[in-house]
Amino acid sequence: MTAPARTAHRHVDVEGVRVFYRESLPDRADAPVLLLLHGFPSASHQYRGLFDRLASRYRLIAPDHPGSGHTEAPAGYTYTFDRLADLTEGFVRALGLTRFALYVFDFGAPVGFRVAERNPEWIAGLIVQNGNAYADGLSDAAIELLSQRPDMPGAEQRVRAELTLDAVRAQYVTGVPDQALVAPDGWTLDHHFLERPGRRDAQAALLFDYHTNVESYDRWQAWLRKHTPPALIVWGEHDPFFTEAGARAYLRDLPDAELHLFGTGHFALETHVAEIAPLVAAFLDRTQ
């Protein structure tokens, strides 16, 4: 009988931030390590399906970014992607990680690429799920949203419109052929965290800072070409923000990457975790 998957729920203090993270407890002390960075407007709970399926065989570690989930940042914390990457670096060092595969999704991609760029020796492999790094992958809706700046008339209202319950739900169900397959738990919990003091301000600040990621695409693509990490690309092809073209674009710089497209939306794990989990397992087995 296969041992049941177990997950510990912990905190660690990094740079004055009380970082919450989930860590699986695999059967083997030398199990391959996978660091999972979550996206907007969610938190590490978005990976619950992968933990359920893989926690007994692999050491999965998924922190909540500042401004998300159970992580507690001090008043006055500056929410930028550079700061999130700094915090993630500190988190990796606090846990003593030296070599791991990196799973990036949505906001987690620009955080993860910054970390990888600074510490290429850490990265044993790269798993990308609807995490964009190419102009090809930006839909018209994404370009319109990400063009907003705080000093533009109406920009604050436009950005904060993405933080309502209806908007959060739409991120989960848009592009999903059978919306009954998407449990309401994810967007309900995301909205709960957005209701906490200061959280909408934090997420709005990150949306306004997202242009720094687009401006870094060329640099990250050069990093991929230089270091050629083993890569697995899994993508919901009906994502309204990060399009299928963004998934295929990775093959220009990583021609040996494994690409799988799924007929679903942005949060592909909500509907296709049963198909994606074995791909992740096989990838970890052959890269670590």
Rank of each mutant, 00 (worst) to 15 (best):
T78Q: 13
T80S: 15
T80E: 14
F81N: 10
R83F: 03
A85E: 07
D86M: 08
T88W: 03
E89P: 13
G90N: 12
F91Q: 08
V92Q: 12
A94M: 10
G96F: 06
L97N: 10
L97V: 11
T98D: 15
T98E: 14
T98M: 00
R99V: 06
F100N: 06
F100A: 10
A101T: 12
A101I: 06
L102D: 06
Y103N: 03
V104N: 09
F105E: 08
D106R: 09
D106F: 05
V111T: 13
V111F: 05
V111Y: 02
G112K: 01
F113E: 06
F113T: 05
R114P: 03
V115D: 03
V115A: 08
A116N: 04
E117W: 00
R118T: 09
R118Q: 07
R118K: 13
R118A: 15
N119Y: 03
P120C: 01
E121F: 01
E121H: 12
W122L: 13
I123M: 06
I127F: 02
V128H: 03
Q129M: 12
Q129D: 12
N130V: 11
N130K: 01
G131D: 07
G131Y: 02
N132W: 03
A133R: 01
Y134R: 00
Y134S: 11
A135W: 07
D136L: 00
D136Y: 04
G137D: 10
A141R: 13
I143T: 14
I143G: 10
I143A: 15
I143R: 15
I143K: 15
E144G: 08
S147I: 03
Q148F: 02
Q148N: 14
P150M: 07
D151V: 00
D151N: 14
D151R: 06
M152V: 13
P153E: 07
G154R: 02
G154F: 03
E156S: 10
Q157T: 10
R158M: 01
